[in-house]
Design a protein around this nucleic acid. Structure first.
Length: 640
DNA sequence: GAGCACTGC
């Protein structure tokens, strides 16, 4: 039964997202539906929700809240007439959930029940239950800040705190208030989350009641190390083979590590060790899993292994939420993750290995108990665990906010510095974003208020870093719209160039013929042009091309990226024009061994050093031409 | 001189 405001059971596991698609054969949808824990609570739950404007619904894995609640609301006419929106952080989840619910309602997907994700809208005027990505609803809000189309908005997976969900919190809260003030149809808001952050959500929504739903998570035994481990990789290796020698071969192991290189190296080590095991030990299949691994290789992690062979999956945090693997009995948690931070003062993104939060550790642990009871080995002491941060810092406090601020201004938010964020980004971060938009000519002050310029309004239409939107919008002036669109498109996908560490030399050799001495952007353009020739495709849009005049392309890029410029110093190192920060050319760049006098880059990333990524050779003069006042100011500062 | 967690519009 649903109960109000009762503390969640101690040490209960944080729920894994219910949005993940079922991996094994399930009974017909309508048969399974009645047996979900939420169905027992249907009556009282709906009675409460009918009376509430806003509610926070806490449900554990397997409670069925995501698939059932929208149907319940629809069936009893809550929100009628109008559409029920259910947001998800990930596309796959939005699509598979819509398919599941359509099946349960025995209707054709895209009619009563539909979904809307980027590039794929499977919904129509009839649609009453619509699953969307949170980013998609945010886009819709730009055209309709009061969300008139919707009578209920369910923000699911709220605990993940994606940048889009965080902005949506503010948007739906404001829409709800305005609709009430104007006597419009009320907007019901339901925030759904795993067992955490409950107070924060409730407080933010003016003390909205919290409703708990029981879940169906299997019990998981947790073991900590007795002593601190100086080398988590070594500790992981020992744990894997200890489990391997003791547990039945049908029980698979999921190990959480931090990144591609580490995972590839560990894969090799495990395979080597597995070759030399004593008689009678089961066989072992070791499989890496990370986002940039080609899809076909990712799929291997899902395949069941033959009898008498254990599967060991070495994964990044992709297996925490995005990917669910059936049959995991053991989780080995190193307690480490590679995560991004952003410092507004330097505009620096730092990618560093750090400790996970408690919430993240629970999420990892939960991956062991999805089908039956499980075991989790935490490669840190319980004492250390208690010192972990409670929550992972929300993404909105770890990012460059230029495009968020641009979107808020497009939503006609009167003052972005005082926008009602659930977790406020630092004023410095917001100011840095405003400054960037100002330099790009996207904003201006009007009667003491920050507003978008006509250029800024156009920039807000693009789902891109404003620097790239600017370059696209200026490209007709430089007669190179075709080239700039191609380059920006290629920068927006990560599937173009796969770079497995084991084949780095081969990769380098294959790329050699596309390399442009003018930098990475033009190299990408060469790759695309070669691809286009092979496939014989032509763009159907009448876009002007500057042909061989790559100078125009670079000049246009400089107009978007002038804030990201660096110059060669007399000692052979590079310094950013903006803050004289010492930077280096990233080894992945075609310019790695070159020494151009002046470059622009897509972004900075600090790992072992501070690297510029995706470089383009430019003339210093073009930078001045792109933002004369900005560079005059820089010069003055340099002279002082 | 030597390397890129994960989403999403």
């Amino acid at each position: 039964m649903a109960q109000d405001s009762e503390a969640p059971p101690a040490k209960r596991l944080k729920a894994a997202p219910p949005g993940t698609p079922p991996q094994s054969a399930a009974p017909p949808a309508h048969v399974q539906r009645r047996s979900l824990p939420i169905s027992g609570a249907r009556g009282p739950l709906l009675a409460r929700l009918r009376r509430l404007d806003t509610a926070v619904l806490i449900g554990e894995t397997g409670s069925g809240k995501t698939t059932q609640l929208p149907q319940y609301l629809y069936e009893v006419g809550i929100g009628h007439p109008g559409t029920i929106a259910v947001t998800q952080p990930r596309r796959v989840a939005a699509v598979t959930l819509a398919a599941r619910v359509a099946e349960e309602k025995r209707t054709e997907l895209g009619r009563l029940v539909g979904y809307t994700v980027r590039f794929d809208d499977c919904s129509c005027a009839e649609t009453r239950i619509r699953f969307l990505t949170d980013g998609m609803l945010l886009r819709e809000a730009i055209g309709d800040p009061l969300l008139h189309k919707y009578s209920v908005v369910i923000l699911d997976e709220a605990h993940e705190r994606t940048i889009h969900t965080d902005v949506l919190f503010g948007v739906v809260k404001a829409a709800q208030k305005k609709r009430k003030e104007r006597g419009l149809r009320p907007l019901k808001v339901i925030v759904m989350s795993a067992t955490m952050d409950v107070d924060l959500f409730s407080q933010y929504f003016n003390g909205a009641p919290v409703i708990y739903l029981e879940g169906r998570q299997h019990p998981i035994d947790i073991f900590y190390t007795k002593e601190q481990q100086s080398d988590y990789l070594q500790a992981a290796l020992v744990s894997i083979f200890q489990i391997h020698q003791e547990a039945p071969a049908c029980q698979d192991i999921l190990v959480f590590l931090t990144g591609q290189e580490e995972i590839e190296a560990m894969t090799k080590t495990c395979r080597d060790v597995a070759q030399h095991l004593p008689e009678g030990c089961p066989r072992m299949t070791v499989l890496p899993l990370y986002a940039s691994l080609p899809h076909s290789q990712q799929l291997r992690a899902f395949k069941p292994t033959p009898e008498g062979c254990r599967k060991v999956i070495l994964s990044t945090n992709i297996a925490e939420t995005s990917i669910t693997i059936a049959g995991i009995k053991f989780v080995v948690d190193t307690g480490m993750v590679k995560a991004k931070k952003y410092s507004p003062e330097t505009g620096l993104e730092v990618l560093a290995v750090q400790q996970v939060s408690k919430a993240q550790a629970w999420q990892r642990t939960g991956r062991a108990g999805r089908q039956e009871s499980g075991i989790c080995y935490r490669l840190y002491t319980e004492e250390d665990f208690e010192k972990f941060e409670e929550m992972t810092t929300p993404e909105i406090q770890r990012c460059n906010l230029a495009s968020v601020v641009l979107q808020l201004l497009a939503l006609k938010i009167p003052n972005v510095l005082t926008f009602d964020f659930m977790s406020k980004p630092s004023p410095d971060a917001i100011q840095a974003a405003i400054d960037q938009l100002d330099l790009l000519g996207a904003v201006t002050h009007k009667e003491g208020q920050l507003v978008l310029t006509p250029l800024g309004k156009k920039m807000a239409v693009f789902p891109l870093d404003p620097k790239f939107s600017k370059a696209i919008l200026l490209s007709p002036k430089f007669h190179c719209a075709e080239e700039i669109l191609t380059i920006v498109s290629l920068l927006s996908v990560d599937s173009v160039l796969h770079n497995p560490p084991a084949q780095r030399d081969e990769v380098q050799a294959a790329r050699r013929k596309f390399i442009s001495s003018e930098g990475d952007h033009l190299t990408l353009l060469n790759v695309y042009r070669a691809y286009k020739n092979v496939n014989g495709h032509k763009l159907s849009m009448p876009l002007e091309s500057c042909r061989g005049d790559t100078g125009s392309v670079r000049r246009c890029l400089a107009h978007g990226l002038f804030m990201n410029a660096a110059e060669l110093r007399p000692d052979g190192s590079y310094g950013t024009v903006d803050s004289q920060q010492a930077v280096a050319i990233h080894p992945s760049s075609v310019l790695f061994q070159a020494k151009p006098a002046c470059v622009v880059y897509t972004g900075l990333l600090r790992t072992s050093r501070c690297y510029m990524r995706d470089l383009c050779v430019v003339d210093a003069e073009w930078l001045h031409e792109a933002a004369p006042e900005y560079f005059r100011r820089k010069l003055r500062m340099a002279n002082n």
